[in-house]
């Protein structure tokens, strides 16, 4: 029986745990603490929690100043309003001086479903990945979100962490699971094709692998939680061993995971790479799952893409 848990909630809990070990962690919210789920931290360390109100640009600027004074600040808002609205502050005040600021982009992808395109975000992986010095990540489940939060604390430098809203299926609760920034995780081995997925599409990819199995295709599934630095070695290994790749993300197919994988492949081991994701369009209001289905971000569409990829193998 599958377990479901909220990645955001795991993040907030991990922050509270890490706050005990690292006295210099501070957490900043911008009137969305109810969504960022950082309350376990602020309950425990009220003097180290700041709420700046609806001021995303100031929030990131304040974090940069705190980092310059030795703190490890975590800033929180919807992905649209950290990576989007505060882009200049992230680039110039955090990344350029390489300050130790951690940026959470919550309610990302289509997960802010009913609120519609102004509150959804399908481009922040691309945008953040293009900024020098940034580490850019997205966990596939609550377990990985907790591990990622801890790794971000231990990493010295600016990081962006993308999270969706709501509960997602836990897929990393297996023996031997290990989280390391920049190292993809083999979720299921296979020899005919590799699906490289990120975020909640990892669980979808595992289901798609089951669907194509019925057609005699043995698909490998990789959880590529870090899009920058991208795991070049693992991508090339999968390319050599399976001959064709499919990327899958709840994100624009331009510049995110699909872009990062394609960049490695086109210059080092040219083979077909099919990109499953949002086809360069804005979303729509609706229940998260309905929006995902509307744009083909489900296992049946992904399985079709996988079959198409296998057909392209030389």
């Amino acid at each position: 029986m599958a377990n479901f848990a909220d990645a955001n909630r795991a993040y907030g809990k991990a922050l509270a745990e890490m706050g005990e070990v690292y006295e210099n962690i501070v957490v900043i919210d911008a009137d969305l603490q109810a969504c960022s789920k950082t309350q376990p931290f602020s309950d425990k360390f009220p003097e180290r929690h700041i709420n700046v109100g609806i001021q995303e640009c100031n929030m990131v600027g304040v974090a940069a100043g705190m980092a310059a004074a030795g703190k490890i600040p975590f800033v929180n808002s919807f992905g649209m309003f950290t990576a989007g609205r505060a882009y200049d502050q992230i680039r110039n005040a955090c990344a350029y001086p390489n300050l130790n600021v951690k940026i959470a982009g919550i309610y990302s992808g289509f997960s802010n479903g009913e609120d519609g395109p102004t509150h959804q975000c399908i481009e922040e992986l691309s945008v953040m990945r293009a900024v020098p010095n940034m580490v850019v990540m997205c966990p596939c489940d609550a377990n990985e979100a907790a591990a990622m939060t801890k790794a971000m604390v231990e990493h010295n430098g600016p990081c962006f962490m993308r999270m969706g809203r709501g509960e997602v299926e836990t897929v990393t609760d297996f023996d031997g699971y290990k989280f390391e920034i920049g190292k993809g995780v083999m979720m299921k081995d296979g020899k005919d094709v590799t699906i490289i997925a990120i975020g909640n599409m990892v669980a979808v990819a595992l289901k798609a692998a089951e669907l194509v199995k019925a057609k005699g295709i043995d698909a490998r599934v990789i959880d590529m939680h870090t899009v920058k630095p991208i795991d070049r070695e693992l991508i090339l290994k999968c390319a050599r061993e399976t001959g064709v790749l499919v990327t899958s993300e709840e994100h624009n197919v331009l510049g995110g995971l699909g872009g990062a994988v394609s960049e490695v492949i086109c210059s080092e081991y040219p083979i077909p790479v099919l990109r499953h994701g949002v086809n360069d369009c804005f979303g729509h209001s609706g229940k998260h799952q309905d929006v995902l289905d509307h744009y083909g971000l489900n296992e049946t569409t992904l399985a079709d893409v996988v079959l198409k990829a296998v057909a392209l193998k030389k």
């Binding site: 100031n58 304040v62 974090a63 940069a64 100043g65 705190m66 004074a69 703190k71 110039n92 005040a93």
Partner: peptide, 15 residues
């Protein structure tokens, strides 16, 4: 942007 950065430094000093 600089006033926000200075606010961050001042907040860190208060903490």
């Amino acid at each position: 942007q600089g006033l926000s950065n200075a606010v961050g430094m001042a907040l860190a000093g208060k903490i």
